[in-house]
């Protein structure tokens, strides 16, 4: 039987950690893990592969953003970037837990014990933080991509993907506002901030193309997922409007060859994983 993901009582795990960090009755990764254990949440192979892509994007971005905490330009931004990182990590945990249910693997098995070639993140999420403007440029692209993606994914025929997206879209709405406000401020602030904002956008823009590429999986998955190319027009419109307000040109660079969905990654991912996985791999099988 497929559980109704909106019926939180059916998914709740009252024995979950005393340090649960998700307030109220929001869907938590622990709830998904419990549903998987009870056999009530079992994605198809295709849905699991699809969830893995979304989970890896969010996980790698959270890992990148987490580095800003204690290094941001202003305390308010330590809090804001930390918050966005936490949201992304929460989404990653939910998607990975659900994906893992297809293969008998936990979120941590997937995060810590896969090799680089087994990750499915797009190159944009792997890009180094750079300066604050580069991070904002990356956030601006990510939020304008994830917001319509999750909004459409709420309509998924897969109830768990729908439930995860329903929680995520509310949070990404805030990320969209945060990045928009900063693009406007940096573009319209000082000469230096404008130069840096332009440089940041030029650095990140080549990785836009990969986000909207369809492939065999997105064709097969049908109503359970969202066809990436169907989001491109809206992305061009929403980013175009903000860049126009900021009096910035849409960067005209050729798009980079992606390949993250097939396990072909940027030079950066290996280093990200080396740091992220080092401790877990030092003590395989240990519980934390």
């Amino acid at each position: 039987m497929t559980p109704d993901p909106h019926d939180v009582g059916a998914l709740g795990d009252s024995s979950a950690s005393a340090t649960r960090i998700t307030p109220g009755f929001a869907l938590r990764p622990e709830d998904i893990a419990l549903a998987a254990e009870q056999g009530t949440a079992k994605p198809s192979e295709d849905v699991a592969e699809y969830a893995l892509r979304l989970g890896d994007d969010a996980l790698i971005l959270a890992q990148r953003l987490g580095h800003w905490i204690s290094r941001a330009p202003e305390l308010e931004e330590d809090v804001a970037l930390g918050n966005i990182a936490l949201d992304q990590l929460g989404h990653a945990r939910s998607f990975l837990t659900y994906a893992g249910a297809a293969w008998g693997k936990s979120e941590d098995d997937l995060a810590y014990f896969r090799r680089e070639g087994e990750f499915r993140s797009a190159h944009l999420f792997e890009q180094p933080n750079g300066d604050f403007a580069a991070t904002i440029a990356r956030q601006f692209i990510v939020a304008n991509y994830q917001f319509p993606l999750y909004r459409e994914l709420v309509k998924s025929s897969d109830p768990m993907l729908s439930a995860i997206a329903a929680k995520a879209v509310k949070e990404v709405d805030y990320h969209l506002d945060h990045s928009t406000q900063w693009v406007l401020r940096l573009a319209g602030g000082t000469d230096e901030s404008r130069r840096r904002m332009e440089a940041g956008l030029n650095l990140m823009w080549p990785f836009v193309g990969e986000l909207f590429e369809d492939d065999a999986l997105t064709a097969r998955i049908g109503d359970a997922g969202v066809v990436p190319s169907s989001l491109k027009e809206e992305f061009d419109r929403t980013t175009g409007a903000i860049l126009a307000e900021a009096e910035l040109d849409v960067p005209g660079h050729p798009m980079a060859t992606g390949g993250g969905r097939r396990g072909n990654h940027s030079e950066h991912l290996g280093l990200v994983l080396a740091e992220m996985q080092v401790l877990a791999r030092e003590f395989p099988g240990a519980s934390w």
Binding site: G66, H67, A92, R93, E107, E275, L279, A280, W288
Partner: peptide, 8 residues
């Protein structure tokens, strides 16, 4: 933060 041994 970047090396925490589990996602939780």
């Amino acid at each position: 933060i970047t090396r925490a041994p589990s996602l939780k």
